[in-house]
Computed example of a mutant assay.
Amino acid sequence: MTESTSPREDDAAGVDRVEALFADLAAEEQGRTAHERMGELGDLVAGEFADHGLAHRLAGAVGAPVDVHVARTWFDGIIDAVGQQWVLLRGRVPGTPRALVNLSRVDHVRMRRVVHGADAVISQLSIRSPLRRFGEGRRECRVFCGADGLVLEGMIDAVGADYLQIRRGAAVDLVPLHALAAVQDLTPGGSV
């Protein structure tokens, strides 16, 4: 024996099904809208990355620790300053050598900050400017150059338009700036 339902109960069940259908459609639309927004956000993030280079990324980490691999050597330190062509690192421990790294020669950077720095943080000076500061201080330096990891030691004697002159006793070595990977300050307590 089947129980008969009243027309009123049938109408109520139909209304509930229609409301559930509309709720389901509304939830689907909200999900679609959220997905589109996430896509737009992804496009914005991708655009932000596309508009900035390595110098901007390093500028966002000024004052933070970083590891830079160049010329078969890891340089670790705190970012002191950044230019379009270079980054200046100070040692993480007081008294450890500072290093100037040519960004065009960098193989790998390991860092924790994931923001880009503002244009105002990036120095407009070429790599020749901090190199001259190393030379003015008559600092003993270790110079990393060439793809094979050649290392020279001496004092920066002069900085030309496209080369670096290193004095080692009576001898002078010339390193084209395009081959310069990094310069490490070996003078204890020196600052650039």
Rank of each mutant, 00 (worst) to 15 (best):
R142Q: 11
L58Q: 04
A118S: 11
A118Q: 02
G160T: 14
D67I: 07
T73S: 11
R17M: 12
V15D: 13
F49C: 00
H69S: 05
P130E: 09
G95P: 00
A59I: 00
R72A: 08
D51W: 03
S129A: 13
E9R: 15
H178I: 13
V68I: 15
W74G: 01
T73L: 04
V70M: 09
G42A: 13
V172Y: 13
L54M: 15
G154H: 09
E153F: 07
G190H: 08
R112N: 03
P7S: 02
W74P: 00
D11Q: 14
A64Q: 11
M111T: 02
A170H: 04
V114D: 11
S191F: 02
P130R: 08
V70L: 08
E48T: 05
R90L: 01
A23D: 14
S4M: 08
C141W: 08
Q124L: 15
G137C: 01
A182H: 10
D43P: 01
R72K: 15
H69N: 06
Q124D: 15
I166F: 07
P130L: 12
L152I: 07
A61H: 10
Q84G: 05
A179D: 15
G146K: 05
E19C: 07
V15K: 15
M1N: 02
E9C: 00
H52Y: 14
Q85G: 08
L44S: 02
D162Y: 11
G63K: 09
L103R: 05
L164H: 07
A99E: 07
E40S: 13
A12D: 10
R72N: 14
V66E: 11
D157W: 11
Q85A: 11
E153K: 14
R139I: 01
G190S: 15
V175M: 05
S126L: 13
G60A: 00
L54K: 04
G117C: 11
